[in-house]
């Protein structure tokens, strides 16, 4: 698929009146790839995600999704934030039905509801569909947020530390759910997954991109070729996983040291 996927070329970004956040970012993410975006806090990974989402515009460089410049937010680029962004004044099912209504304005209210419930079933939330976000745990809210991007049918998922505030057991479950969703999606969804957890980045991603700090720039871009089924236990104990983890830890440590030397 020529021109498919996400092309980021020479992107520079600074907030008004503050230092440069991102400098010279170029990345080519083919459609269907699952990319983990790693980096120390302050490396601008969330900002890069906001640029891809179209919530911010770069001062220099360009972002193309399937050949079209990203100039504003759009439903084809679904975002899952760390801080559960389901609207608290709607039930979980309504949150999703409303999003479906925006994605497919021709569908009736009943159709939207029915479809919403189907997606909630997929993420294991069907029993909570009439509940409000405040009645749910952090993990369940993130399931709802994932269900919403699925319901909208976004081919590109942008996830900003989506499981950062979830307890370890649920975090592992959500990682597996996300992988299952990705592996069974047709056509395969493109996912950019921001995290600061090295293990998580390696477990979910096919490729790990590391951003260095001040200003944020790509300091490493590694393919994750961990052969075979992703059985968590054997994967984490495998030699290949450990080697990758160590080299990533080294890159991150060097970046931290370099930053300390500057300051």
């Amino acid at each position: 698929m020529a021109g498919g996927g996400l092309q980021i070329t020479g992107v520079r970004f600074a907030y008004d009146g503050s230092g440069v956040i991102l400098q010279g970012i170029s990345l080519d993410i083919p459609a269907g790839q699952f990319v983990s975006l790693l980096g120390a806090s302050g490396s601008g990974k969330s900002t890069l995600l906001r640029l891809i989402a179209g919530l911010q515009l770069p001062q220099q460089g360009s972002l193309l999704w399937n050949g079209t410049p990203v100039l504003a937010p759009g439903l084809e680029r679904g975002v899952v934030f760390q801080d559960y962004a389901l609207f608290p004044w709607m039930t979980v099912a309504d949150n999703i039905a409303v999003a479906i209504g925006k994605a497919r304005p021709a569908s009736t209210k009943a159709e939207c509801r029915e479809e919403a419930e189907g997606h909630l079933r997929k993420v294991g939330l069907d029993s909570a569909r009439r509940k409000y976000p405040f009645e749910l745990s952090g993990g369940m809210r993130q399931r709802g947020a994932i269900a919403r991007t699925l319901a909208v049918g976004s081919p590109l998922l942008l996830m900003d530390e989506p499981f950062g505030a979830v307890d370890p057991v649920n975090r592992a479950r959500l990682q597996d759910l996300l992988l299952e969703i990705w592996e069974t999606s047709v056509p395969r969804k493109t996912i950019v997954f921001v995290t600061h957890d090295v293990d998580e980045a390696l477990y979910v991603g096919q490729r790990v991109v590391i951003l260095g700090s001040v200003p944020g720039r790509v300091i490493a871009d590694l393919p994750v070729s961990l052969a075979g089924a992703r059985e968590r236990r054997s994967l984490i104990e495998s030699e290949a996983f450990r080697t990758l983890r160590e080299s990533i830890a080294e890159v991150l440590a060097e970046d931290t040291l370099a930053q300390l030397a500057v300051s």
Binding site: R50, A53, L55, A72, P73, G74, L75, R77, G78, V79, F81, D83, A85, F87, V98, A99, K102, V152
Partner: peptide, 12 residues
């Protein structure tokens, strides 16, 4: 901000 972002992404 997160609800504003959300509204923009959903196209409200």
């Amino acid at each position: 901000q997160r609800y504003r972002d959300n509204a923009r992404i959903l196209g409200f």
